[in-house]
């Protein structure tokens, strides 16, 4: 990676997105988008459809020109990179293959464009798990196989930066697990991984960092661990067959009790030990008491609950989903 910074300054981030603005007609697709992606992490790029994720990725790859702002790869604009696929590997749209060309030949022309040979193609095929299917025409591939092919293509140049747009789309559970493992190990090798999704749950156990966007700008930019800790609060999960008795006893002790399942209560305001003490004193039977750990989905809902912009964007996305004809510009 080349760097233009003075030696005293920290090295530039893997991806730096700085104040991007872009309009498609009357719609502002990007409205001051700024964030950075660090090496060695998986950064989730989350937001509803139409929030500007794909447009941002296209700007990073030099495919779309922003009206304002810039995007840098290791401090350098994409267009200035030599052999760009050895700097950034990207999967924008798994369907973007020539149907009549075999998957292997798809990788082969891409390799040739970077001065790479068939040997490197065979290496990424090996890692992709496509196996013998690689000689078949890509037009006959399932979406899951195309996602694997797309990731293999992104890995051709062995790049330090990877960017995947909605790689979980259309994958079966096995595929989702495969991609999660794949992204984790890539980050563990020190690479920067930016992965977009409109469903938070897909990034569970995968992302280290989250950039949450709505209406073309960043709403939250935070580490996942921090976010979950904050959302979990001091809540305790209680499993008991005697819900009514437990609720009365705990409320009497000053706790806030919510019913979260047929035999599950969530208690706020009392520690786990205190809950055990109160229930024992009241002779209420219980099966399990544990500290609550929020899911990423929950944390995400907590995070976005108060964001007016985000809700507006989400409503808009829902409206657009009902009326796809208006969805063209910002998609």
């Amino acid at each position: 990676m080349t760097s233009t910074s003075a030696p005293a300054q920290p090295p530039p981030p893997a991806i730096a997105v700085q104040g991007l603005r872009k309009r498609f007609g009357a719609t502002a697709a990007l409205d001051g988008m700024s964030f950075a992606v660090a090496f060695g992490t998986v950064t989730g790029f989350v937001g509803p459809n139409g929030a500007g994720k794909s447009t941002t990725m296209r700007v990073i790859l030099g495919l779309d020109t922003p009206d304002e702002g810039r995007a840098l790869i290791g401090g350098v604009p994409y267009a200035k990179l030599r052999r760009p696929l050895s700097h950034v590997g990207a999967l924008l749209d798994a369907a973007a293959v020539q149907p009549g060309r075999s998957a292997r030949n798809h990788l082969l022309w891409l390799a040739h464009s970077q001065g790479l040979g068939a040997k490197r193609v065979d290496e990424v095929i090996e890692a992709s798990g496509l196996g013998s299917a690689i000689r078949r025409k890509a037009g006959g591939y399932s979406l899951g196989m195309r996602q694997r092919l797309g990731i293999a293509a992104a890995m051709l140049g062995d790049p330090p930066v990877l960017m995947l747009d909605e790689p979980f789309n259309g994958l079966d559970p096995e595929g989702i697990v495969w991609i999660r493992g794949c992204l984790r190990s890539l980050a563990a090798e020190g690479r920067a991984v930016l992965v977009s999704s409109h469903l938070m749950g897909e990034l569970e156990d995968c992302a280290d960092h989250l950039v949450v966007v709505g209406r073309g700008r960043v709403i939250a930019d935070t580490a996942v661990a921090e976010l979950i800790a904050r959302s979990s609060g001091g809540r305790v999960v209680l499993r008991t067959a005697a819900r009514a008795g437990a609720t009365t006893a705990l409320a009497g002790a000053g706790g806030t009790v919510a019913v979260t399942g047929p035999d599950t209560l969530t208690v706020d305001g009392l520690g786990a030990e205190e809950v055990v003490r109160v229930l024992s004193a009241a002779a209420v039977p219980f099966a399990e008491v544990s500290a609550h750990r929020a899911s990423l989905e929950e944390a995400y809902m907590d995070l976005t609950r108060d964001s007016v912009e985000f809700r507006a964007a989400q409503n808009e996305a829902q409206n657009e989903a009902q009326n796809p004809a208006q969805n063209e510009g910002a998609a």
């Binding site: 790859l61 030099g62 495919l63 200035k80 760009p84 696929l85 950034v88 924008l92 464009s113 293509a153």
Partner: peptide, 9 residues
């Protein structure tokens, strides 16, 4: 897009 990402020029 794949072609242009591979050849930004």
């Amino acid at each position: 897009r794949t072609s242009l990402a591979a050849s930004p020029r």
